[in-house]
Simulated scan of single mutants.
Amino acid sequence: MNLTRTHAHAFDAFDHLATMVAVLRRDGRCVYVNAAFESVLGLPRRALQRGRVFDWFVDPATLKVTFDAVVANEFATARLEALLRRPPGAASTEPLPVHAIVTQIDHGEQVLLELVEIEQQTRQDRETRTLDQARITKELIRNLAHEIKNPLGGIRGAAQLLEMDLESKALREYTQVIIHEADRLQALVDRLLAPHRRPHMVSDVNIHEVLERVRALILAEFPKGLVVQRDYDTSLPEFRGDGEQLIQAVLNIVHNAAQALATRRQDDGDARIVLRTRAARQVTIERQRYRLALELHIEDNGPGVPPEIRDRIFFPLVSGRDGGSGLGLTLAQDFIQQHHGLIECESEPGCTLFKIQIPLP
């Protein structure tokens, strides 16, 4: 019997995990590694299965003590922090911080080693907080908007009736101010409620058609000093979604970027926005695992998001620009979440990156 083939068949399910998984003998030699291990280390399984697990770590002694304790049945499971070596020729030579989980399997005859990238765990925790905050904020804003909407109609109507009885033009100007401000607030409330009113129009969506539409709109509004670069993976499949919502979500982000690039557009003429599409594999979004996802990057070379609002940019009424409504990114996040996706932002002076992930079939 071919033991390697038998093991591979038994552990095939591990290839669907985002975390790195290895199955080891009691002496630390590798029986199996999953696809995530291959991807992170950039080495084929055969190469990884030729050595011992301890060779992969910067400080193997601590791992060996833990591993031996699990093998000796002192613990069924043990956890520790470790540094995973990068193979020669890797893009980065820096060791990879991981959280290691060592567990007995097969009645103690084998050991399961699971490695979770510290950065990945931090990102998932941040994503969970973002989604929870978005849900709470969305519900709060929706309820508040409904509470504001009813009195506004009464205020506007009363101002109109009062204006009919006033003979003084000066006094009618005051009623016009009341009516105008009531209309402005009504428009704001309508924008807050808009995502929940409009029906979801689902059809086959080509993300590059969405991006080309947005690109044309932006270049028409900002024709000078701005370059919108394409970096597309044209092999990406179509998916079911609401094309108009996706156009609006992407347009809100790109429009914000173009406005933030005002100085570069007008003074330097080197403002740049990059639209980049890629396929991401084994992605977790909102605690749900997806085999394949669209990853859309919107990157600009502007001044960056102000540090004081970086953690709140998706909250309603939070804006880093004078005169901004603070609703564009809130609506964008809402539209993407309706597609079971998520928007994240990384920003520093000279580079702001919005990353959109949407599951693909």
Rank of each mutant, 00 (worst) to 15 (best):
L3R: 14
T4L: 11
H9I: 14
F14T: 12
F14R: 03
L17P: 01
A18M: 15
M20T: 07
V21Q: 02
D27N: 11
G28V: 00
R29I: 00
A35S: 12
A36F: 12
A47N: 13
A47S: 15
Q49D: 07
D55V: 07
D59A: 13
A61F: 03
V65M: 07
V65W: 08
A72N: 08
E74D: 12
E74L: 14
R79P: 04
L83S: 14
R86I: 13
P88K: 13
A90Q: 04
H99M: 13
Q104D: 01
D106F: 01
H107M: 11
G108P: 02
E117R: 12
D125Y: 10
L140Y: 05
L140R: 00
L144P: 06
K149M: 13
P151E: 05
P151M: 08
A159E: 01
A170V: 11
Y174R: 00
V177S: 08
E181C: 00
E181F: 02
A182P: 01
V189Q: 03
R191H: 06
L193M: 09
P195V: 04
P195C: 05
P199T: 06
M201N: 11
V210H: 05
L226R: 04
V227L: 13
V227A: 14
Q229F: 12
Q229G: 12
D242K: 04
G243K: 06
E244Q: 13
L251W: 11
V254Q: 08
T263L: 10
T263V: 13
R265A: 11
V283G: 03
R289F: 15
R289K: 12
Y290Q: 08
D300W: 01
G302F: 03
G304T: 08
P307I: 11
F314N: 02
G323I: 08
E344V: 08
C345L: 14
S347Y: 12
E348Y: 05
G350V: 09
T352H: 04
